[in-house]
Design a protein around this nucleic acid. Structure first.
Lengths: 139, 139
DNA sequence: TATTGTTATACTCTATAACTATA
DNA sequence: TATAGTTATAGAGTATAACAATA
């Protein structure tokens, strides 16, 4: 009994995600941040100050985990919790200057990760795969 | 500051995998097996009896977790541990008749899962996405 | 010496619930 | 009543190491 058929979609997605996460973790290693925390930093850089709830939605984590991630970032001086101007329940998570410096390195690590992940594909295949993946996931 | 650019590849893979795992878990719900255990059953059905080490490689788990998965399957009478004919360290994990019955239902759940995951794509897009995903992941 | 399977431990992630202060 | 953030807890997954039997 041999294995001629391709791996089912779900298993391939699992392996694809594991592979991507491992490469990203390797590239992030020297920076001392974990994958999800790096994702939080990139979102803050891209979208500007966000509430914890907004960040939870973005990275598909949960609010009690987000408390811990923000705690860790704040302890390293990479973000600040600021009062929300219109909702006193909420707080805005804001990048500090130190956070911006690290974010630039995180972004480079992310770019290197994408390059490594797709260096066996042509630029056209890379683009097509990314577009189909986004449609598959979010449409 | 708005969000016009597509989600980066790594985040999209994370979300794609989460989405697929949740749909599969929904479809598996009535059968009382978890995603990884279902994957083990499908591999046994597809490849025939396997050692635990082989199964670990297939589903990208680790050997101490695999012990627990096989324990759970064996407790439900779905697989048997049999002596390996040529390596007395190893054991072959073999589907029982009850395991084959459940496997058929698991396979149907997996088919429904793929249909649900891709029902907003054309058959051609579906096929192309699957091919590119496999190349991305395993090449 | 290395490997298969087992057991144990520690750490992280996930899910849930309760609590506060607001809305 | 519902929501944002916090805290606590339990369950599952991951990583690691040690061990016995065998290669």
């Amino acid at each position: 009994m041999t294995d001629s058929t391709p791996p089912p979609l779900g298993l391939a997605l699992r392996h694809a995600h594991l592979r991507a996460a491992r490469v990203f973790a390797e590239e992030l290693g020297p920076l001392g941040v974990e994958n999800i925390v790096a994702g939080v930093l990139m979102h803050l850089g891209h979208l500007g100050p966000q509430t914890q709830r907004q960040l939870v939605e973005r990275v598909n984590s949960d609010k009690s985990a987000m408390v811990r991630y923000i705690d860790a970032l704040e302890a390293r001086g990479l973000v600040r919790r600021e009062p929300h101007p219109t909702d006193r329940r909420a707080q805005l998570i804001v990048l500090t200057d130190a956070g911006r410096v690290l974010l630039a390195e995180v972004q480079e690590a992310a770019d290197r990760t994408e390059d490594r992940l797709t260096d066996h594909l042509t630029p056209e295949e890379r683009e097509l795969f990314h577009r189909l993946l986004v449609r598959f996931t979010y449409d």
